[in-house]
């Protein structure tokens, strides 16, 4: 089987090569298509000359890249039908806002199909979609809807933050026999980092400690993880920085271990706050590590309001590395007062 080489060894050695986030997506897609003829991609503009911001450019198997009409609901049903009959589709949405047009297929169909039939059939679909703000894109082109999908049983939700992770996680998602929502922040696309050329997997459900520190546990996803790294570089913060990489399934053990050490928790997730991922992590830690907490867990993300468009309003709405540093200092500073 094409993927059996990964059954025991997920990792490869660093070969000193550097790629951008978007190049890593492209390479993972190309390599998956290369070893497995069942893998194909479809979506609006998937086959156009811009190749989904370059993530689909110059692939070795262009015959397996299918451009679609703006029919997100049918496109998603088509991906399901193909997955039920032996293929492994990657369905691409240029903005995650477009997933909402296909909520029936994603929530009522894809998420439920396997369990609704007694786990007799598998649904190997990757739903790639691009999240986050652009440049005055306003309320319908700037959302990050990971929390919405994480609530639905049957969906895995993946949020890579680095070029290394995005390649390994995309390969894991394609290899996975169940549906995976794969959220890529557009502001990460040009970031560069070490990415080995060989195929490797980053396991779904395994988080990553990006910084080691004692005074505060920060759980940060996707662009927020990258922003928090920058905040650490700029402001010399002493934090334990956890990038969960996949928010469902969630590496709760890694987060709980860290909170046991620090006694404090800040969750940074660029999404709406009400009933979201940040709330879930705060609830989980409160339920499972209440005795370790020295202060109330806190969240940083979007306000409970729709995205604005004008520059000054955007700058007020969106968190930044500086705001992250300020929040961390407030939380850590409170320890001195206690």
């Amino acid at each position: 089987m094409p993927w059996s080489r990964f059954d025991s060894n997920y990792e490869v050695a660093d070969d000193g090569r550097t790629l951008s986030f978007v190049e890593a997506i492209r390479e993972a897609t190309d390599q998956a298509m290369g070893i497995d003829p069942r893998v194909f991609a479809l979506g609006l503009d998937a086959d156009d000359k811009f190749g989904v911001f370059g993530s689909m450019s110059d692939l070795s198997h262009p015959e397996r890249v299918i451009g679609t009409p703006i029919s997100e609901n049918a496109n998603t049903g088509v991906a399901l039908g193909a997955a039920l009959t032996g293929m492994r589709p990657i369905l691409i949405n240029l903005r995650n806002d477009f997933l909402l047009v296909a909520m029936d297929q994603i929530v009522n169909y894809i998420a439920k199909w396997s369990s609704m039939f007694g786990d007799q059939i598998q649904v190997p679909i990757v739903l790639r979609s691009v999240i986050g703000r652009g440049w005055g894109c306003g309320a319908q082109h700037s959302q990050s809807l990971q929390g919405l999908f994480a609530q639905i049983p049957g969906l895995k939700v993946v949020m890579p933050s680095s070029p290394y992770d995005v390649k390994g996680l995309l390969l894991s998602a394609i290899k996975d026999d169940s549906p995976v929502m794969f959220f890529e922040h557009r502001w990460l696309y040009k970031n560069t980092g070490p990415v080995p050329e060989d195929m490797y997997l980053v396991p779904i459900g395994k988080g990553n400690r990006l910084r080691e520190g004692d005074s505060l546990t920060v759980v940060a996803t996707s662009l927020a993880a990258a922003h928090t790294q920058k905040a650490c570089d700029d402001h010399d913060l002493d934090i334990d920085l956890i990038d969960p990489r996949t928010i469902k399934p969630l590496d709760t053990e890694l987060i709980l271990d860290s909170v046991q050490k620090t006694g404090r928790l800040l969750v940074i997730d660029y999404d709406f706050p009400f009933g979201g991922f940040g709330a879930e992590v705060c609830a989980m830690v409160t339920e499972q590590a209440f005795d370790a907490l020295k202060a109330p867990p806190q969240r940083l993300g979007f306000p409970d309001a729709n995205m604005p468009a004008s520059g000054p309003l955007e700058r007020a709405y969106y968190p930044t590395p500086d705001r992250i540093a300020e929040t961390v200092r407030q939380m850590v500073g409170s320890e001195l007062v206690v």
Partner: peptide, 11 residues
């Protein structure tokens, strides 16, 4: 919705 799923099976 299952109309589209049948189309996917044909693809």
């Amino acid at each position: 919705g299952s109309i589209a799923v049948g189309v996917g099976a044909a693809l």
